Amino acid sequence: MEYKYENLLVEVENKIALVTLNRPQALNALNKGLLDDLSIFLTDADYDSDIRVVILTGAGEKAFVAGADIKEFANFDGKEGQQLAASGQENVFNKIEDFPKPIIAAVNGFALGGGLELAMASHFRIASSNAKLGLPEVTLGLIPGYGGTQRLPKLIGKGRAMQAIMTADMFSATRALEIGLVNEVVEQADLINRAKEIATKITNNSSVAIKHAIRAINASDKETGFEIEIESFGNLFEEHDFKEGTTAFVEKRKPNFK
């Protein structure tokens, strides 16, 4: 099968699909086009017997994904905000988490906001030594809307997740490894080769057993938290802080939250 997309580069070799999020001019920020391409790829790859493992990474050396494309939703109201979160989770983030073939996030550089949420939805993560990971949504008057409030506590613990989300601080690659946010840290030049090493080991095992393992492991995580996150995310679009936070971002100034 041939894979051609506007915002993704896909190379399939030895049963491994290397998927590069390809908007380097915008530090691979998640816009509607990129999310749509990812959703289509996942649907196609599910049925492609030539793909047993997927590696997700970002184009360039600076960023995996630097966040969502804020200009696309800065003028949304609450209903549109809820729809943004719900459709993103259903069509991409939950689709990644529930994908029957392993998805490895190879985090090169910044993974912020929706970028970290994309990495957390993947089945596990390895990072380059220059990676920076965080959820800065509160600086925009928002909360994470693509599963971040649910997945981060499960990976690093409730207290650390609370602090990270409230402060909007970034984790270094070393700290991310210490707290279990990533599985391994390697030099950037070695990142894709290491991801392929792990993927090759996985392709040698039973794909049917792995599919069931993914389903069983994920079954322990299903709660109502995602619904609450979507509702809260949408409600915040009606607040002054969201308007101020996004306006300040676009104007490249510090927000003045009352």
Rank of each mutant, 00 (worst) to 15 (best):
A176C: 13
I103G: 12
G245P: 00
N183M: 13
L135Y: 13
K222C: 06
N204R: 05
A105K: 10
A105V: 07
K71F: 06
F73E: 05
N108I: 13
F41K: 02
N205H: 12
A106C: 09
L181P: 08
Q83I: 07
D50C: 03
N235W: 02
K243T: 05
L27E: 15
E239I: 01
A213T: 03
L30E: 10
T20C: 06
A216M: 03
V138C: 11
M162R: 11
L236Y: 00
P153M: 13
D46W: 04
L34N: 09
R151D: 09
G81N: 03
Q25L: 09
K211N: 07
S128V: 12
K79V: 04
A164R: 07
L27D: 15
I16S: 03
L112N: 08
G225W: 11
E244N: 07
K132H: 14
G60N: 05
N28L: 13
H212A: 06
N28V: 10
L38R: 07
A45D: 04
R151W: 12
K252V: 02
G60L: 03
M170A: 15
L133G: 06
T203M: 05
N75F: 01
R151E: 14
N75A: 05
F171V: 08
A127T: 11
I156D: 13
S172C: 11
I156R: 11
A161E: 04
N28Y: 12
R52M: 08
G81I: 01
H240I: 10
D44Q: 02
P153G: 14
T246V: 04
A176Y: 02
R215G: 12
Y47R: 14
V250C: 04
K71Y: 06
N31G: 15
V54P: 04
N183G: 00
T247V: 01
V65Y: 10
F249V: 02
L135R: 11
I55K: 07
G141Y: 09
A189P: 01
P136Q: 14
M162H: 09
A29Y: 07
T139L: 15
Y146M: 15
S39E: 05
G109F: 07
G58V: 09
L9F: 07
L155V: 07
G33W: 00
A74E: 02
K132C: 05
I70L: 13
A131V: 14
N94K: 14
L34S: 11
G145P: 06
D44H: 05
L116W: 11
E61L: 14
P144F: 15
A17F: 00
A173V: 10
T203A: 03
D50F: 04
F110R: 15
E231R: 06
V208H: 10
A74L: 02
R175K: 15
E72F: 04
I228V: 10
L9C: 03
G114C: 09
E80S: 08
S122Q: 12
L142K: 15
F257W: 05
F76R: 01
S207T: 07
L236S: 01
P100S: 11
R151H: 12
L116D: 12
